[in-house]
Design a protein around this nucleic acid. Structure first.
Lengths: 206, 206, 206, 206
DNA sequence: CATGAATGAGCGTTCATTCAT
DNA sequence: GATGAATGAACGCTCATTCAT
């Protein structure tokens, strides 16, 4: 009411400032989360690293989960793009599954295993937010479609359920990865066997 | 150490008392843990429910993880016994896998999904204690052995790896169960399909 | 740091509020400390008396020693001022020593003997903070200077060591005061004799 | 009532056992107290070192102060004996005071400065037990008597109050020793000056 | 928009102490 | 006489959260 035309301008400045602070917080959060997993990472460390007040964090993110979500969103898009590009090339189902393992391993090494574990468990958490459904997971969607195409081409058992098969596979890969106790060598072996095993559950052994 | 033979006898009374208190705490803990998972569980609520002093909890259990371990120990034995009894009866591999799903579902409903999740994640936790290795999981051991017997009987693909197959199956079941978002009906369907899918990965479709 | 000029102005309101809470805590602390000495003092009682949350205490004071230091700081300034004003008047050495005894007795009665003891022992504590050195004690400094002036005026033995003499005197006064078992009457007598005795150690009996 | 003549015998055995445990506790206590001062030393450490149960400590000693008292009692007797033997030899007052400083320094090095500090503060503590009065301190008694004899021999000012003078001296020595912050060299200098200063307060400068 | 003071709940821990055995 | 289970009070501390400014 006391404001003149400059208000929208001022608001814009605020927007810029807000996004700046928000980005600082996200950057600091990913560093902290990588270090100690999202459970352990305390907000103190994040805000300290971001150079803002503790309460500023809560201004931007209602809970620490919201930070995670924002981080996930970033990478999911990238992952889906990469996987989509791969699907545009010549490929068979074994190659597809292997590619997925590779992508997920990439993701894990980018995030660190502790944080990765936390992120995955968001998909399983009883309190997970609406949009983190499997049905929305970009890789899941593409994989299910690919399996279905394969089935229609007659390469798989007739009665294969593309949706569930895709879920079993991704779930399995994630679960194996969270089995952090084994050495990387053992894990790689297990993943390779898992791909083979999954293929056998889909198509007649040729 | 300085005790003579009579002491251990006399001490029995105290032992009984101690075990009683301990059991009260465990009972109260499982209730609280069921409600909110072991991480979030309020120790104050537990001791209040058990009717003992806060410090008594810490007298018996150094950390909340120790409670969890004790709870697991209890049920694992029971589970393994039940599964062992089942294996003594006439059965085929599909029945075995179905039985396992059933047993795990039982366990989950007894524990509640939050606590169940915690327990499972003990198997995946980077800091899990030695004895909570897959290799020691009673169902895992029995299942792997059963798969291997089946393979030797020529019922499975020749090159099936019993150890990994058992792991994939249990991991998958657990993972599906932690996917709490779906309705129970959907979950049951998914589990049934998962059993079928696993069987196909093990034996030629007849 | 990112603040502009107006912030410090605006912050003043908060500063006032903060200092108010801080003062409330200090006031409550001195009451509790008087009752039972700073070691034994119950932080819960302090915060309850101050009408703030427990964590607020720790927000303001990392340890209980910090409270003590703040209390000391308050009174040392006052004490030094009063002693300084006295030194500005006409006086001789006996009057100076007597004045010191009087000031210290005042301090003790304001603080109570338990707290007073704690405060003094800060000067003796192996972990005492830098600034609580004798060399910084305001009365000590003034007394040593006064003794030295007296010596230069030829009123004392030539070889009197002002620094040590001042220390012996203050130490003695404090030590006598911590000897709480005797009645006040006995203590007053002892203090009077101690002043006489100290004077005799400084100047030829006239 | 069911007991026969063997009771007194049995009681004797118990006595032996009790004294044995008591001695073990004392030995452990002095070690622990030396390490960290009596304030810090926790009963846990003592009972652990003594190899007895926590509650056994409380069976023998109502409070930790009672342990200290028992330890003091031991050494005071020895100290008084040694000082008494010295007084039997040819000596003058300066030698007496110097001897006392020496004895106290010995005591301090035997006990460690932290424990020594605690012990001394027992003499000043508002809750100190009856028998820890200055009036009972063995050295104090002997010193006061010696000063009085000296005064009677006409070596001191006529009006010297032996009781208070002895108190001032011992108090001063103890107080200087608790000034732990200074180097040993500085402390020795201070003690020497303190002896001189005290002598001057007692006898005309020759 | 961002801040910092303040909160409240809980944490894991220490420790003197009691008491039945 | 000695024990160990149990207690209760306080400790210092963390941390998500609220709120007035």
């Amino acid at each position: 009411m006391r404001h003149n035309g400059r208000v929208s301008e001022a608001a814009t400045r605020r927007d810029v400032q807000r996004e700046h602070t928000r980005a600082r917080l996200l950057d600091a959060a990913i560093v902290e989360f990588r270090r100690s997993g999202s459970q352990m990472a305390d907000i103190n460390a994040i805000v300290k690293a971001a150079g803002v007040a503790r309460s500023t964090f809560y201004f931007h993110f209602p809970t620490r989960e919201h930070v995670l979500l924002e981080l996930i969103r970033r990478d999911e898009v990238q992952l889906a793009n990469e996987f989509g590009r791969f699907l545009d090339t010549r490929h068979d189902l074994p190659a597809v599954l292997t590619k997925i393992v590779e992508l997920v391993l990439d993701l894990e090494s980018r995030w660190g295993s502790a944080l990765f574990h936390d992120v995955i468990s968001l998909y399983f958490s009883p309190t997970r937010p609406e949009r983190e459904q499997w049905a929305n997971h970009p890789i899941f969607v593409l994989l299910a479609a690919e399996i279905e195409r394969s089935r229609i081409r007659g390469e798989l058992y007739d009665d294969v359920d593309a949706y569930h098969s895709a879920a079993f596979f991704l779930l399995g890969v994630y679960a194996l990865l969270t089995t952090a106790g084994e050495s990387n060598g053992e894990r790689d072996v297990a993943l390779k066997k898992f791909v083979t095993s999954t293929l056998r559950s889909l198509q007649p052994v040729g």
